[in-house]
């Protein structure tokens, strides 16, 4: 389905655009980190150490109010003093309020975000494209019924809808053994499971499929009237043939571009859900931000580091979306990519 011409356009657009390279680089780093987190992370992200809590990142200092009591002249004196908390090379990005390593947590958190982003988007694409193409291709009553339903879905604020659905279904999640740990490649001190937040994935898909349905319908409407579709029908091609061979391939470009944008939106939605405590994931960027929120004035890094990770992921994915949009634009399609 990807023609050599498309590949050529992708390549030439990539060589032209610095931002596209940057986007791919960012996403590659995040993907790599997520895949090999047990090998890369310096600590077990769930390992607590209260003696080492709220350690600032390297290069920063932080002070902490410490209350000590001592006997002075037979009386107990309570002394409050400011103590400088030293950074340690062991925790380059510091630790959180329970002494867990922020860097390790952020690395593992990438897994949840990417899992939810990719799987959620995939389900949303399949659902939305099926509905949208059916509506656009057949038109008439079918179109009216499906699209009015989609409009109703659009009327709900996505976060509210997501919370309502989670409230309805509960927080089902599966623990999948981490192959790197199970096979002994990574240290056995690392968490043994990857948590797959099932409900969250389904819910973010149900909240976002409407966008794909809208775009797919519009594409199907325009492709439906192309002469090659008439030609296929005049040859005796069934609806299924026409949809699979002509309508779907010719509708994919904007859907692909939309998908990249939606991955970013879904990552944000997952973070919001985790932040609000609805996702059930304990190792996620959003969850860590929620945890760090109350220490923002004293230990800003607890929330800031996962926050920057979200920003980086969203920017990276959006840059890739821009690249795909430019490269697959029908306007330059067919020229084989000008130098």
């Amino acid at each position: 389905m990807i023609s050599p011409r498309t590949l050529r356009n992708l390549r030439s657009e990539l060589s032209r655009s610095l931002l596209a390279k940057l986007g791919i680089a960012i996403l590659a780093v995040i993907l790599f980190t997520a895949l090999f987190a047990p090998l890369l992370a310096p600590h077990d992200p769930t390992d607590q150490n209260l003696d080492n809590a709220n350690v600032p990142p390297l290069g920063f200092t932080a002070t902490e109010n410490q209350t000590t009591s001592q006997m002075v002249d037979g009386e107990v004196q309570i002394v409050e003093e400011e103590v400088v908390v030293n950074t340690t090379a062991e925790h380059p990005l510091g630790t959180d309020s329970l002494g867990r390593d922020v860097l390790s947590r952020t690395m593992f958190g990438a897994r949840t975000s990417l899992l939810v982003g990719l799987l959620g988007t995939s389900i949303a694409v399949v659902l939305g494209v099926t509905v949208g193409i059916t509506a656009g291709y057949y038109g008439g009553r079918i179109d009216d019924a499906l699209m009015r339903f989609a409009d109703v879905m659009l009327a709900f604020p996505s976060l509210v809808l997501a919370i309502a659905l989670i409230g309805l279904w509960g927080q089902a999640s599966w623990r999948i053994p981490d192959p790197l740990v199970a096979l002994g490649i990574a240290s056995s001190e690392m968490p043994e499971h990857v948590v797959l937040p099932g409900t969250v994935i389904v819910v973010v898909a149900l909240v976002n499929w409407v966008w794909f349905a809208r775009v797919a319908r519009g594409e199907a409407l325009s492709v439906r009237d192309q002469e090659y579709v008439k030609a296929a029908r005049s040859m005796g091609g069934s609806d299924l043939h026409v949809i699979l061979k002509h309508v779907l391939p010719n509708s994919l470009t904007p859907i692909l571009v939309l998908a990249t944008i939606q991955i970013a939106a879904i990552i944000l939605l997952e973070s919001s859900l985790s932040f609000l405590g609805f996702s059930g994931a304990q190792l996620s960027w959003g969850f860590d931000i929620a945890q760090g929120r109350q220490y923002l004035s004293s230990s800003w890094w607890i929330a800031t580091v996962p926050g920057l990770a979200i920003v980086a992921a969203v920017i990276g994915i959006n840059l890739i979306g821009d690249w795909l949009r430019d490269a697959l634009d029908p306007g330059i399609e067919g020229q084989g990519g000008a130098p």
């Binding site: 389905m1 023609s3 192309q226 002469e227 090659y228 008439k230 030609a231 005049s234 040859m235 005796g236 061979k245 002509h246 391939p249 010719n250 399609e333 067919g334």
Partner: peptide, 18 residues
């Protein structure tokens, strides 16, 4: 559908670009 065929007008939209 086998015995009768159509040839269309528009050289651009009558062939699937993909």
């Amino acid at each position: 559908r086998r015995r009768a065929q159509v040839m269309f007008q528009d050289p651009f939209s009558s062939l699937d670009p993909r």
